[in-house]
Design a binder for these strands. Structure first.
Lengths: 203, 203
DNA sequence: ATCATATTTGCATCCATTGCAAATTTGCAC
DNA sequence: GTGCAAATTTGCAATGGATGCAAATATGAT
């Protein structure tokens, strides 16, 4: 990612970065729907058309670091430790997946503001869910490959879907209830434990 | 739903139904993105503007029966049987959730064609995932209410998220592998069993 | 038949998105 | 340095979804 060899690449990276920062700032200041692509590009002083050669849509700019996060998780699964169980590996992956990642020389965490945008704005929420689901498909594939002898594709999918489905819904509901970040985090962990133990453990 | 008292209501129902049928037919014939709202309304002989007083967006017309399905599931959860376990109830709900439901006098099943559209067209897939997630939130709330003494909100969320997350990802991957409808159905059932037994049962 | 209300319709408008060809910039060879 | 080929940016036109609004219609109760 961080291979800015020539002037060309460096300039592109700078433009991309500037577009992301301007967009996120404007989205926070005046709201996503109230911000036009023209306003974003005006703030960076490039043409509107250029925006769409960097991002395929206005939504995309909010998920600029998604691919880096996914790749980090995929790598962890592919490089799994020899005797590690599926559950241990997945817990290790999820606990690291929230760390900051570097994308195109732009290191960012999933700030509360961004998280709020993604869960609040319908267009972003839908896009985020689509990306999340695609991620789950890729992780399930990687998990199957990493444990080819023990897990068939459906079992791998069930494992990823169950764990991530439980954690995602639980954290969302925790947030919706206005709980503190610590409580939200705890909700996610409890949900994963339930997924690991099985539903019958609570019925 | 089926209370078409006056001419007014009957006419509206007829228009709504005609719009849905024309839209689905056109989407199948020439593709979702290639079909304009103007073409749909032309086929029904109403103005383009009218379309948007029946549906909030072009995507919405594909999910016309979503609300009816969700309400059926919510009702089943609310009317749970006295001594029934959470797992038994949820299995009963999921096995019935695929039955045909009646929406505005229009009874429909989730045809393969419609399913294909929803999983294929990015805009529909994203919208469908948004609706599915919203459904999960509502089901989790209902489950918590139905088992208020046994499940707190987070546990209810973990249960719904785990079960539906596993089933959805497993069926999607099964479909993607080109498996038969029977195999897809079996994949969903296996995934739910794994969610119920717990991930540790496969590691 | 008539009036109040509910619907439909016809604009005008905004904005995201895309294709295309012209203009500009960059990297490299000479 | 110059000049050329390739990569980028830009301007422009066009498409299509979505919304607000006021005029035109249709409906139903008296």
């Amino acid at each position: 990612m961080g291979d800015a060899v020539g002037l060309r690449e460096r300039k592109k990276l700078r433009t991309r970065r500037a577009l992301i920062e301007a967009a996120l700032r404007l989205f926070e200041e005046k709201g996503y729907e109230e911000t036009t692509v023209a306003e974003i590009t005006a703030a960076v002083d490039v043409s509107t058309r250029t925006f769409f050669s960097y991002f395929t849509s206005k939504e995309d700019v909010v998920f600029f670091d998604g691919e880096a996060r996914v790749e980090a998780a995929l790598k962890m699964i592919a490089d799994r430790r020899p005797a590690e169980t599926v559950v241990d590996l997945l817990l290790r992956v999820t606990s690291h997946s929230l760390d900051a990642v570097t994308d195109a020389d732009l290191t960012v965490e999933l700030t509360p503001a961004r998280r709020h945008l993604i869960t609040t704005v319908p267009a972003l929420r839908a896009r985020g869910l689509d990306l999340l689901f695609e991620t789950q498909q890729r992780l399930a594939g990687a998990l199957h490959r990493a444990y080819a002898d023990e897990l068939d594709p459906i079992e791998a999918a069930a494992a990823i879907g169950s764990l991530m489905g439980a954690a995602h819904l639980a954290t969302t509901i925790s947030m919706e209830r206005g709980e503190t970040p610590e409580q939200v985090w705890a909700a996610g962990r409890r949900a994963m434990e339930i997924a690991i133990r099985g539903l019958s453990s609570i019925g």
